[in-house]
Design a protein around this nucleic acid. Sequence first.
DNA 1: AAAATAATTGTATGATAAACACTAAATATG
DNA 2: CATATTTAGTGTTTATCATACAATTATTTT
Lengths: 235, 235
Amino acid sequence: MQKYSKQTRVLLAVDCIIFGFDGDELKILLIKRAFNPEKGNWSLMGGFVQTDESVDQAANRILKDLTGIEGVYLEQLYTFGDPHRDPTERTASVCHFALVDLNKYEAQLSNDYHAEWFPLKRFPKLIFDHNDMVEMAKKRIRYKAAFHPILFELLPDKFTLPQLQNLYESVYNTTIDKRNFSKRVLATGLLIKLTEKDKTGSKRGAFFYRLNTQNYYAKFQAFLNFIPNPDTLRY
Amino acid sequence: MQKYSKQTRVLLAVDCIIFGFDGDELKILLIKRAFNPEKGNWSLMGGFVQTDESVDQAANRILKDLTGIEGVYLEQLYTFGDPHRDPTERTASVCHFALVDLNKYEAQLSNDYHAEWFPLKRFPKLIFDHNDMVEMAKKRIRYKAAFHPILFELLPDKFTLPQLQNLYESVYNTTIDKRNFSKRVLATGLLIKLTEKDKTGSKRGAFFYRLNTQNYYAKFQAFLNFIPNPDTLRY
DNA sequence: AAAATAATTGTATGATAAACACTAAATATG
DNA sequence: CATATTTAGTGTTTATCATACAATTATTTT
């Protein structure tokens, strides 16, 4: 079949903002770029879409190749298409974000992949427009987590209510009343209380919970609104 | 500067779902494709991103060139990147959606551009993956309009409360109590009542309102939730 | 045994959403 | 000109949900 003549072809890249939670604050995973231009500078995980793969497949492959991470929450965020965003050659980047259990991958990541976790509140200047990408991802995760239970993706399979509350407080940079938090969270029917306790965080120990995965998928679309002041949020 | 060798270059397209409201139901604007493949079949408004323009600029240009429409609400939706979505040649499409005042453009569109409005509930089969795009746009507009006052973009500058309610009822395929609707909508402070009445729709006539644009931008992020049953919605 | 630490739990109040039906204004009709 | 017709406009009550707020329990450490 005849091709579309006279049209410019461009490189198609995928970049990923990988979020993790260390129990205290949100972090993102960065890597030192291995090739020119900007070799040695901090960058998001990224790569080019290959001939035979879809954009989604490319995102998953890049995540796996560069970090070993697979099977995690991954969502398309936005396509950045300024003609000069990469000075080398015109490249459009389909930006994604991922949510992972940081503790599960910590050692593997620094040893095998030389990737590093940085606090979302203070991380180095990134190449190209990657700082804009992080900014947008940060807004999106706050927006989406206000209505959908995506933050569970950042926790281990077993977690405690104080841990969960820490996560919400950290994402929204606020404090939430313990009693109201547990009431609302338990009312969703998304949590199953286990008999086991986590004794690492306190003397008394806090009960572990796990996700009711059935309800998780069923209720994914309708969750909670934990935003203290939605007016300050932007999509 | 050296180029990235060994990487595949692809065509980068932009497609637009253009939504309009005729007072009764939601419609989308379609065009008969002017070139092969699929020449003569119904298609979304689309075109290729040019060398010197960003993706956003391309979306605006395509909208203007193919419909004459400019200065309307336009938002990036999703990038479709299946390697075989266009059989001719690999093409990624950054899909957008636009919201326009249908009555403002109706004549101009059919005469000058041979574009046609189709009800969102029954429109022809489209080329490639354009049907998937429309499906996603439909979900997105419902999702977003539940929290942000974007539907005003579909109405003329002056509109009545019954018109506005019709629009919401049509988008969510539901019925809303008049009293509760007007209470909530007026409580937002987004509407300014005019002295003039619209007499075309009824004997008594309904007062016109216009947007308080200051408040519109200020409160864009925090609006209302008109979804009758959010569980049924998907992002 | 007492102190320290963090987890767990309930109630009262205010705000918001939902249910519900009649009156008012204007035109059309006999 | 009186009456009928049509759609616009408006208030109250009730139920639900969000918020504010503090004492007790379990366990470990001293």
